[in-house]
Design a protein around this nucleic acid. Structure first.
Lengths: 191, 191
DNA sequence: TGGCTCATGTAATCTGTTACATGATTCT
DNA sequence: AGAATCATGTAACAGATTACATGAGCCA
């Protein structure tokens, strides 16, 4: 087979595009505001950096999936992005496709799995750090579920609430596991 | 500032190295066997492809963190890797460091969060697919917890069990959430 | 006046996956 | 005989982070 005939068909997912389009389907936003939304509302199951958001916005604009409006608010330069009809179609098409893969990379679990090499005390520290972080974040999540369950009007909130409920449920399971994990380690000697 | 003075200090994590060293701290393995271990035992919180495993093994060998032994078993060529003392030190150092970040990317939750754009039926399908996958994997996890809890001897098993318990706990929380999510969607019209 | 938040962006590079490639052995 | 599994590997590329860079407005 000739070299130039070789077909390269690497999948093109680029979920940051879908995250941006999704956020813009709710309301028009600046890149900076998108990052804020991701770090608060999506935090429990997604993350993104400015280094992926801003370049993606430029590409999406060139492709006509979003439109931009450069303004000045409170003396500050802002670029407010709005989803276009084409963008909405693009988003819908993706939403209708089945989920390809949920990707989990719990570094904490990795350190526990190989924990035997360093012993019980260090493992207990990892569990403690994990628990502290979850405990500090859980109240925000519970607050969100509570607030959203009282906002009966807009359906958008219901979908948001599903994910907040997911976070709450999973976080509580994490905390239960922390308790049980410590019990298991009671019967293990340190190194 | 001169260009050549500019300091580039991008963090060097490369967790595949730690995964390999961790697996080898339990027993000597081929790259192929490592992939198997990852796809069964670590599956619930980690994943890796041959395309990351094999190149990493070559680098680790050059760095002296693992040693290789080329053999023939059942007429099959194999390269069995063993962790070196230096490799054990490297692994221990990493295990002692605090966890930097657990990275979660639930594509399912992303599709739910923006679900309003495509409506209830599609969202219910995503929930169903999620539930089916979890239900099919849960028994393996429960079996692992059961088996491991009876193996009292080796401490290594206890650490493995912690992660299996984690998987079981979280998977059960997932299933509970699926039920509740459907109830929430009962009160929502389709599109 | 100094530090924080708002706001946008780029260059380097890291880390990993996907698709391709190859070939032997074992099972049915 | 053919399919599945065992076994190792590479080239191309995807997709993202990190660190750097810049500058204005707000608050104490």
């Amino acid at each position: 087979m000739a070299l130039e005939e070789r077909r390269v068909t690497v999948a093109n997912e680029k979920k940051i595009d879908q995250v941006i389009l999704g956020l813009l389907s709710h309301e028009s936003l600046t890149g900076y505001e998108m990052k804020k939304r991701i770090d608060t509302m999506l935090k429990y199951f997604w993350s993104a950096s400015y280094g992926s958001i801003y370049p993606a916005l430029n590409i999406l604009e060139k492709e006509g999936l979003v439109s931009k409006c450069e303004t000045k608010e409170n003396g500050r330069d802002k670029i407010i992005y709005t989803i276009t009809d084409e963008g909405k179609i693009h988003l819908k098409e993706w939403l209708e496709l089945p989920v390809v893969k949920d990707e989990l990379r719990y570094e904490t679990m990795l350190k526990l799995f190989f924990g035997c090499e360093v012993g019980k005390n260090i493992t207990l520290t990892h569990i403690q750090n994990f628990e502290d972080k979850i405990k500090s974040e859980l109240p925000y999540l519970q607050g969100a579920v509570n607030t959203l369950s009282h906002l009966q009007e807009e359906d958008t909130h219901k979908y948001y609430m599903l994910t907040a409920m997911f976070g709450e449920k999973v976080y509580k399971a994490y905390l239960e596991w922390c308790e049980e994990a410590r019990k298991v380690l009671d019967g293990v000697e340190n190194e």
